[in-house]
Amino acid sequence: MSKLTRQNYPYYLLLPGLLVFLCFFAYPSVSGFYYAFVNWDGLQIRGFTGWENFRNLIDRDDFGLVFYNTFLFTFVTTFCKIVLGLLLAVLANMTLKSARLLRSVLFMPVMLSYVAVGLVFSAIYDPDNGLLNQLLAWAGLGGWTQSWLTNEHLVMYSISAVEIWKTAGFCMMLFLAGLQTIPNEWYEAAKIDGAGAMGRFRYITLPALRPVLQINVILTLISGLKVFDLVYTMTGGGPAGASEIISTVIYDSFAKGYYGEGTAANLLLFVIILIVIALTHKLITKRGEGV
Rank of each mutant, 00 (worst) to 15 (best):
Gly140Ile: 07
Gly140Ala: 15
Leu141Thr: 10
Gly142Ala: 08
Gly142Arg: 03
Thr145Ala: 09
Thr145Arg: 13
Trp148Arg: 09
Leu149Asn: 12
Leu149Asp: 09
Thr150Trp: 12
Asn151Cys: 02
Glu152Thr: 15
His153Lys: 15
Val155Gly: 01
Val155Gln: 03
Val155Glu: 05
Val155Leu: 06
Met156Ala: 08
Met156Thr: 05
Met156Leu: 10
Tyr157Arg: 11
Ser158Glu: 06
Ser158His: 04
Ile159Asn: 11
Ile159Leu: 08
Ile159Gln: 06
Ser160Gly: 08
Val162Tyr: 10
Val162Ser: 07
Glu163Cys: 08
Glu163Gly: 07
Glu163Trp: 07
Ile164Leu: 10
Lys166Gly: 02
Thr167Tyr: 04
Ala168Cys: 12
Ala168Leu: 03
Ala168Thr: 14
Gly169Lys: 12
Gly169Trp: 07
Cys171Asn: 15
Met172Lys: 13
Met173His: 03
Leu176Asp: 10
Leu176Gly: 06
Leu176Ile: 09
Ala177Cys: 01
Leu179Ser: 14
Leu179Glu: 14
Leu179Ala: 13
Gln180Arg: 08
Thr181Leu: 05
Thr181Trp: 00
Thr181Pro: 00
Thr181Glu: 07
Thr181Ala: 06
Pro183Phe: 10
Asn184Phe: 04
Trp186Glu: 02
Trp186Thr: 01
Tyr187Trp: 05
Glu188Phe: 02
Glu188Asp: 06
Lys191Asp: 08
Lys191Met: 02
Lys191Gly: 00
Lys191Ala: 05
Ile192Cys: 00
Ile192Lys: 01
Ile192Ser: 01
Asp193Val: 04
Gly194Leu: 03
Gly196Tyr: 12
Gly196Met: 12
Ala197Arg: 15
Met198Glu: 02
